[in-house]
Amino acid sequence: MPDLKELMGSIGNWFLFSKRVIGLFFREGISRKVLIQQMYQVGVRSMVTTCVAGIFVGAILAIQINLQLKDFGAQSFLGGLSTSTTIRNLGPVLIAFLLSGRVGAFSSAELGTMAITDQLNAIRCLGLNPLAVIIMPRLVALTISSFLLLVLGLGLTVFGGIIISSIYLNVNPLQFVSHIPQFVSGSSIFIGVLKSFLFGLIIGTISCFVGYKTTGGAEEVGRSVRRTAVVTLVSIIVIDFLVSFVVESVTQLIMS
């Protein structure tokens, strides 16, 4: 099975790469100016996308959950249930999908262009380590700003749900909000935030890794973008499942 061997090889390479870059971050630190500059570049460009994504995801899930609750005549639970489902499970995944297409693909295209036009080699010639100078600030900035954007988007999903349910589903905002505390506990919010952080880390490390390893010509940059997008989406799904599974097992252990 050469495919499987290749897959395992790249997972291992990715892991080593992330370990080395994150180790560099903890050993050498990062200048605050560079970090803020990079975060500004990544964050501000994707702000509109994230806001739109958050509001729309909240609205979509409110409509869907409303459909399901209508069969039970339990529409009054709409606010709590849709907010809880969005924050715990589907919200981070869908917003991270959009963000990975925007942020992850962009930085892997940028790094890939740098790699194929020998800009990384030029830095090596100057006696500097490209991992420390180019990759590490980007990876840290990507991780932090994806995390912040995801949390912002998650917050906005609540507004999306409120807007759609008041203008379209005839559930007034107060009724919507009043059920939220009943379902959304601290642990749900913690799970949402934990997932957001892990997705930010995934987007950052994978896009930097694929971009850094790009070789060849212009076509390879396009292929890198595609590979980043697909791999990020699949890993987001897998990580999401693992977090849900672990949390579920831990709660069952505690309960029993």
Partner: peptide, 21 residues
Amino acid sequence: SQGVGDAATQAVARSSLLIII
């Protein structure tokens, strides 16, 4: 080559946003 990377990125980002909308 920058253009190709940009085009691919924009395509992914824009089409996933339009999918949600």
